[in-house]
Amino acid sequence: MPKSSELKQYIAFEIGNEIYAVDVLFVESIERMAQITRVPHSPYEVLGIINLRGDVIPVMSARRVLGYEEMPSTDATRVAIVRYDEYRIGMIVDRVTEILNIPHDKVQWGVEALDGKRKGVISGLINLGDKPVMVMDIPRTLELLLN
């Protein structure tokens, strides 16, 4: 367990009007949107594959993962390249806002913001004054894609 006062970094991004965050340790890089090739029979959340400097990687839509309507991409759309275990996958977000430094005990863990299939995708809540930030559980999200 991390020490309660230890600062952890999160990358915060927007989906619609809400703010989400992922542990920076899972994020390899933030990329601009690229042309997506559709992959037949892929899971609903996966939009297809992209060419990332010569590597082929799948991309998923954070909107679909979190249960939002799909929207056309804009200039602000970014792909966060997420890495966990043997997975390397891009996550498309509306906009990356900032990097947050949060002490571990300032995150309210065990919050279950989503139900059903998406249960567990949000694992924590950061109360930052004007707007709460929802922390995404990357391992759980990737598990969701497999099943």
Binding site: V39, S42, P43, N51, V56, P58, M60, R88, I89
Partner: peptide, 27 residues
Amino acid sequence: IKPLGKALSKIKIMSGATILGDGRVVL
């Protein structure tokens, strides 16, 4: 041939993808 990555490893009808001269990804 480039692998599709673990998230798509269940899709059997594709053996991978390739990148064309213009940067496009093709299955």
